[in-house]
Amino acid sequence: MKSVHPYDELLRTDRIPHIWCPGCGIGTAFSSMLAAIKESALPLEDFAVVSGIGCTGRVAGYLKLDSFHTTHGRALPFATGLKLGNPRLNVVTFSGDGDLFAIGGNHFIHAARRNIDLAVFCVNNFNYGMTGGQVAPTTPYGAKTATTPMGNDEWPFNLPLLAYAVGAVYVARWTTLHVRRLTDAIREVFDRRGFRFIEILAPCPTAYGRRNRMKAPLDVLKYFEARVRVRHDADPAEAQIDLESPIVVGKFVDRKRPTFLDLWSKRYAPDEDEEVHVA
């Protein structure tokens, strides 16, 4: 009998093996999400997964759920439209740091400001992997990339602090080494409402690791193992990533705020309030 992988039911197996490089963390982040979807036992037809462009954007193409591969940086506007058009959907945005924070940075801050009911997973691999490893808004100061061969002179975004400051109700950061905790966090996020954000630090051995003395896939995970400190409820301001100090991970923010649809329906459809939100 031919054996079947437990996640095959959620994968378009005709497209596997996927295009990601050996040791790429996106596959691990993706399988954590699949594990969380399976564990949650939420109806699969209510899921809508939106991703943008880039390596991580290919997630939408490998997933056997309703998924949407959108234009570059515009994953969140598409997801916002999906959620507002059909509030019953459990809309998940799974995209990369370049897509969500470089070209799509403006959409991120406004989706979080409005508190649209979205789960946003950002795979941060510190560079633009698909185009050859150029410097990105998340590249740590001093790191070498294809366009900063002597070292990066820009400060990177502190994504948890940014998400917290613009109003996300759930902010966490995990690495692909912490797959169990990442799966639990994603599982937890499916039970919350509002703009929920998880940053997933992922190795990019081919484009980023190779230029920063972490050539083998395992080197990056060993680097995470040595540098990461788990600190729940830490101040997101302390979560800045640089090349010297420890990388702080954990659940930083878990709070409640009325979502855009709550406020909208309170004003325009006060009688239907109960029906609008299911997810």
Partner: peptide
């Protein structure tokens, strides 16, 4: 052309599923 892993000490496995979830390629369970 990749070297593949093999379960040489199969009797030691306690079914923790960690290989399954950390594998980026859905290649092991």
């Amino acid at each position: 052309g990749y070297h593949v892993p093999s379960a040489l000490k199969e009797e030691e496995c306690v079914n923790c599923h960690f290989c399954e979830i950390i594998c980026p390629d859905f290649a092991i369970y």
